[in-house]
Write a protein that binds this DNA or RNA. Sequence first.
DNA 1: TTTCCTGCAAAATGTTTGCAAGGCA
DNA 2: TGCCTTGCAAACATTTTGCAGGAAA
Lengths: 143, 143
Amino acid sequence: MTATQTRDLEAILTRLKERKMRVTKKRERVIAALLTAEKPLNAEELRERGDLDLVTVYRNIEAFEKAGVLQRIPLENGAQLFELTAPDEHYHHLVCRECHQAERLDVCVGEEMRKVAEANGYSHIAHVLEVYGLCSECLEDEA
Amino acid sequence: MTATQTRDLEAILTRLKERKMRVTKKRERVIAALLTAEKPLNAEELRERGDLDLVTVYRNIEAFEKAGVLQRIPLENGAQLFELTAPDEHYHHLVCRECHQAERLDVCVGEEMRKVAEANGYSHIAHVLEVYGLCSECLEDEA
DNA sequence: TTTCCTGCAAAATGTTTGCAAGGCA
DNA sequence: TGCCTTGCAAACATTTTGCAGGAAA
């Protein structure tokens, strides 16, 4: 873990404490796994890197999501990846449909979407925007 | 089926024939179910309304998607809905996170997303944009 | 020492595959 | 007739639930 990652870890643990959630070894490992991976991971990768039960992974994903420190990335095939996020922030991604690498996109359409949704009588609004494609490496492999 | 729906059905069947796919009673029923529902359906609803095996539903979803007459709508929970689409078109939706009703949104960010993705070296680009919220009816039920 | 968290086992959910029978072209 | 499509059974992948033991505050 780099110094920055350690700081991020502390910040997230603090957030959990504020929400009256317990800070356990397992939880630290889940967060550390996501921080050091520097890319979104799926549940199985989290189990492996955190050396814990898959059930624990899923329960913590749910808990972290509620605490606003984690978000889900839906893949084209229905599976999902998970990544850390600051509370009240969220990200969109460019995901390779072959190797499933995901990188953050520097765009967000949140404001527009919120307006459209509210105009239709919806509240508690969230949105998902994911872009799928073939990354340059996978494109070469295919040729 | 309204006259318009019958015409749409014919158009889709023609498209299938062009693609050398067979036009069967089951396929007609899948498409008719989606046309008359006038909203996206999940696999189980398609099985029920078309009175056919779930396996057949999934195989036809895949076949129709390849033929460009159907698209998937990912839900927040990882499940998916299906709806008819014209080839080379696609839609975005406002989905209730409670009752899962989905309505089409009249927005698309395709051009921007394609540019961003290509700038990152990606090809074969697609994107998903779905807005989730609580519809006014479900909001009331909650209170 | 109370309450929350974890692991194990098992179940539920959604989707895919193998194979033989059936139906469109 | 020939090949595509279908249904059944079973496998598979992912996620959820029940319960007893374990650990944080």
